[in-house]
Design a protein around this nucleic acid. Structure first.
Lengths: 195, 195, 195, 195
DNA sequence: AGTTAAACGAGACGGTACGTCAGGTCTTCAT
DNA sequence: ATGAAGACCTGACGTACCGTCTCGTTTAACT
């Protein structure tokens, strides 16, 4: 999915293409994005794009995820709920932003049509983030802040699933209160309170 | 989004179009689906398609959701966890099936590009289902099987969010154990057990 | 090779395409002529060109030969040599003109690469002209102005071959004197004069 | 147009390129010949081709005419008509052959689009041959076998024009009888026999 | 029963973009 | 310092669909 190694010296146009892709995607939306347009905007031949990426989705994925570099890392204040809240709100803010939200939505959309994108989205976006979450959860569990009886992957899904569910399937934005409600429900549990 | 009323008598080709759409979608995938192809397969002029639906996504949505009619309704055995398990597994089975899973994924994908589809997916798929869930949850709460302190929408998101998260963002299938794990964690809560 | 019959009433863009083809061919030359350019100049979709003609050469052939309609017909003054001289000079003038000469040369050039063009060039250009010549020669023979011992096709080749030979294979223009010389030699014969 | 002198010792790839050009031209035809393909077939970089020749036509011209070396030279049996017949039939056989005919036709075709090719075709193919013809005709004239009243260039055109006319403009092969007919008509003349 | 008007199949049309190919230039590396 | 390799921009190729737009042609409801 990523560009090949140029190795043998030539002016690498990869960055120009990725930059143009992000610009265009923001201007006209993913649906009207085209390789033709990207090449023109980057001042590059179409072949130069096709040489590196097999599809419009692949260019877009590289363009978008190259901005994700070190954003959503994890804090560790010692309070697992507070740290989850911080990080989940960072994710919520990114996905809810006008400049990035629609692009991430479009990327997930494309992933539903193209298995290669599915895989890359998982490996370069979802997995790194859930790995970070899992690490933080592991530490919390060692410190006795987390029930030991649940699998860490299950917990990650329980916490982040609702976020993506709202993001992808429910029209309209959502705010920090939703994150709070999810965290509260997840930690408290749904079972009725014993007397 | 739905077909108009034909009023003056003529053989309604709506069904033929929807049937052809589903067939083609299964054969070539949503990405290579085209209105041109649908019309040809249905033995219908392109205009007949455009008369009723504004876009390929809209035809596809009608075609797919017309099969959703009354599948995922709710049982009521008196045991809320058992009933949730039943229904969540029904959803898992549908989304995980070879014949429908990719189509629902494609529909969610299209929804990320087209606001009209987003809205229709919510109103005709997500909302009816979550309404059903909410009703069942309400009854359970009245019967004291559910903690009263959480919003019903929050609970729906907590339970179904993880399902869609796995479905849309994690490559590979998942089985009933995942549903069990989510239900168990959601009902138990993540907080450490008091001594 | 020719455009299909439109029959069912629609605005026929054939003429617009042919006109644009001739214009462009004169402006940029046949080598740089392109179907893309023709369509753009004619204000027509590329498919509209491809629907009617299988190749750039075919469009060009139709465009060029549509101007040939009734030009090079035959006079009949009763003097076969004078009439041949008149007609051969008309051909020489047409092929030698700046506006048509290069186009006819290009058409012959294209015919060497594409059998369909070869055939069409023969049937719609060469054959009609040589048929006219043959008719005029036949009459002359009946009037005793022509030796009866030669095949008419041979005579046509003997008279027009040299013209095309100069046109296609010898750089530089030629004038009426060349036509005179050919006519004189052809009618006199190469054998040494008997005493 | 010709390859540069390599002079300083290095493996001269000129021959490899010319050989590859002829092979490819015979396999796929001139129209689908490409410098890209020639370079690949010859195991040579594209630049190595462009360094020596300015265009595909130029390579092809060198490749084809390098086989013409000394084929069509002139016999001298003392009988001008017999010698012309011999040589014209040699030309007819070469141009009519399956392996060379289409290539020569393609070369003439290319000459109609590219003035540099036109010139080279004339200087390296047409002119040498017609020079040979003219020499033989001159000798015949000195021996009284030829009318003195016609220009030698006119005679060459009168004899060879019809051959190229048939070759380039009339579909279908032709045989020795055509050469005989042309020679007979040219020597006899078209004027009616005096009583 | 004949009339009428819609919806229909067919498909041409001007377009946009596709993904491929070749053109010709230029740089790098190995010999 | 030459030549093989091949990246690069350019531009045309021929194809596939887009969404709009006539065309006659059903066809069923209303005269």
């Amino acid at each position: 999915m990523s560009a090949a190694d140029p190795s043998r010296g030539m002016p690498d146009r990869t960055d120009a293409v990725l930059r143009a892709t992000l610009e265009l995607a923001r201007e006209v939306g993913y649906a009207r994005l085209s390789i033709e347009g990207i090449a023109a905007r980057a001042g590059v031949g179409k072949h130069t794009v096709y040489r590196r990426w097999p599809s419009k989705g692949a260019v877009f994925l590289d363009a978008l995820l190259s901005t994700l570099k070190a954003d959503l890392s994890y804090p560790d204040t010692g309070d697992i709920v507070a740290d989850l809240r911080t990080q989940m709100n960072a994710a919520r803010t990114l996905l809810g932003s006008d400049s990035y939200g629609p692009l991430y939505a479009a990327l997930v959309g494309e992933a539903q049509h193209d298995p290669a994108i599915t895989q890359a989205v998982y490996e370069r976006w979802i997995k790194p983030l859930s790995d970070g979450t899992r690490e933080r959860l592991r530490k919390a569990r060692e410190q006795g802040q987390l029930s030991a009886e649940h699998d860490l992957d299950t917990i990650v899904a329980l916490l982040y699933g609702p976020l993506y569910y709202r993001f992808l399937l429910i029209p309209g934005d959502y705010d920090a209160a939703f994150v709070d409600a999810i965290l509260h429900a997840a930690f408290t549990g749904l079972s009725p309170k014993p007397e």
